[in-house]
Structures are given as structure tokens and as C-alpha cells.
């Protein structure tokens, strides 16, 4: 089974965000970067699909800068076979140019399944997977929490508001991974050592122009300092009064 996983280097969620001097991006100094949380589920699922099939290849692909090599090595340490870095100068806030670069790389690769994370925790677009599927002309099921694939067909379950959607699809297909799909493995020391020797190809690419211009990236307005209305159950009337008469939400 031939599998590709698109992965992204994102700031660790614990990171405090500081805005850079130009007011349009984050200040990366001192920020710890990790493999995007949801991409861990995608990599794990690809590894399991390959293991179950008994043979195959798992290729990880990322659009990023030189620094993304480290992210690829993390996925290789988990067990992926090789990596491709599509090297670009900057990022795009419009997800479509990135999706186009990924689709160009994947097209013709004869992958049975291309996996993505449900969303990247930096830009929160939830977009790249379905866009790549559209560009490649293959079916896509997004935010998948349960997946079964056999005989060139698959069934996926995805959580929707107030229920679970059951979707059947044919291969090749794009799947984006939600939490719950699996338990991502931690790279073992042996995996980390082996990852250093696995092939990692770097290709220079130019992103197409996007249609969104960043005016500003700003910290959200500080929430107004709230107040403790009281202690214990005796404070309940004061809380209800505040919710009714001040906040007017009851």
C-alpha cells in the first residue's frame, strides 16, 4: 500500500504567542516547534495501514522552510520511510497555494491514501486536505475518527453536530485525521537513530499567489478583568443577579 502524509511544523500549544515587529506574524524567537498535533494521528494511521497491508511505503511531505526538516525527521522516527521537503521562502495565509504545491508533488505518485491532519493548530484553516482532494480529483473524508480500509474501498466515521456520519469511499482517497482515530506512538530511540539515515529530499518550489493579504496579526483583546462574586453556595444569588442584570445572558 502506498501512503503519503502531509505534515506541518507548528508552534507547541503551550507556547506564549508574541507578535513580531511588523505586526503580521508571530515572533518565532524562543518558540518551540513540534509536529502538528493532528498530523501525529495521520502519521500513525498511515503506519498502521502499511503494517496491516503487510507491505508498502509511507512518504511524508511538507511545505516549509529548512527548519521543517526537523519535523520530517520526527515522522521518520515514528516509522515513515522517506520525506520530501517542498522548500519555500515564506508561508501563505490562504491555504490554496500550499494545497496546490502539495497536489503537484502528490500527483502521479499513485498513492492509495493521502492523509492529513484535520487542522493545523497555527492557522486553523481545516482546509488543506479537502483542497488537495479536489485538486487531485479524488474523494475525501475529513475529520475522521474511525477508519476501515479493505479491497480498494473504505468506510470512515466522522463526528458531526449531534451525530456521527458514516461515509463509504473508493480508493485512492484523501483522509483527514481527528483525535480518537488512534494513539500516536512515541518515536523510540532506535527509530530516532534510524531516522537520521532515511532519505529526505529537498525541492525548491514557489508558491502561487494567494488571495488574502495580512493586514494585521494581533493578540485578542484582553478579557476584561472579571470578578469573584463570592465564596461558596451563598454567592449563588449574587452570580444570578450579575448574569441577569449586568451581563444580561439569563
Amino acid at each position: 500500500m502506498k501512503l503519503a502524509v502531509c505534515i506541518k511544523r507548528t508552534p507547541d500549544t503551550e507556547t506564549r504567542i508574541k507578535i513580531a515587529g511588523d505586526g503580521k506574524r508571530i515572533d518565532e524567537a524562543g518558540v518551540k516547534f513540534v509536529l502538528n498535533t493532528y498530523d501525529e494521528y495521520a502519521v500513525e494511521e498511515a503506519l498502521q495501514l502499511k503494517e496491516r497491508a503487510g507491505s508498502g511505503e509511507v512518504v511524508v511531505v511538507t511545505v516549509g522552510t529548512e527548519a521543517s526538516q526537523e519535523t520530517i525527521r520526527t515522522a521518520l522516527a515514528m516509522g515513515a520511510d522517506r520525506g520530501v521537503l517542498l522548500k519555500v521562502d515564506g508561508a501563505s495565509i490562504d491555504p490554496l497555494p500550499v494545497a496546490k504545491a502539495l497536489a503537484d508533488e502528490l500527483r502521479g505518485g499513485e498513492y492509495d491514501v493521502v492523509l492529513f491532519g484535520k487542522l493545523a493548530i497555527d492557522d486553523y484553516s481545516h482546509a488543506t486536505g479537502p483542497m488537495v482532494a479536489e485538486l487531485l480529483g479524488v474523494p475525501c473524508v475529513s475529520a475522521v475518527a474511525k477508519l476501515e480500509i479493505a479491497d480498494g474501498k473504505g468506510t470512515a466515521e466522522r463526528e458531526i453536530e449531534g451525530g456521527v456520519e458514516v461515509v463509504e469511499f473508493s480508493l485512492p482517497a484523501v483522509i483527514t485525521a481527528d483525535k480518537g482515530l488512534n494513539e500516536p506512538r512515541y518515536p523510540a530511540l532506535r527509530g530516532i537513530m534510524m531516522a537520521k539515515k532515511k532519505p529526505l529530499e529537498v525541492k525548491d518550489v514557489a508558491l502561487a499567489d494567494g488571495g488574502l493579504e495580512i493586514v494585521e496579526l494581533a493578540l485578542p483583546p484582553e478579557r476584561q478583568e472579571g470578578r469573584i462574586v463570592g465564596e461558596g453556595a451563598d454567592a449563588v444569588p449574587a452570580l444570578i443577579d450579575a448574569l441577569r442584570n449586568e451581563a444580561k445572558v439569563l
Partner: peptide
């Protein structure tokens, strides 16, 4: 639109005829 787990907000201007 919010980004970075809601820790920052982008203001974006649309530069294409359709969005």
C-alpha cells in the same frame, strides 16, 4: 479570524474578486 489556538487574531483583506 482567530489563529494560534485563539491566542491571536488575523485581520485579512481579500484581494481577489471572489472569496
Amino acid at each position: 479570524r482567530p489563529a494560534y489556538s485563539g491566542k491571536a487574531t488575523y485581520t485579512l483583506r481579500v484581494t481577489s474578486p471572489l472569496v
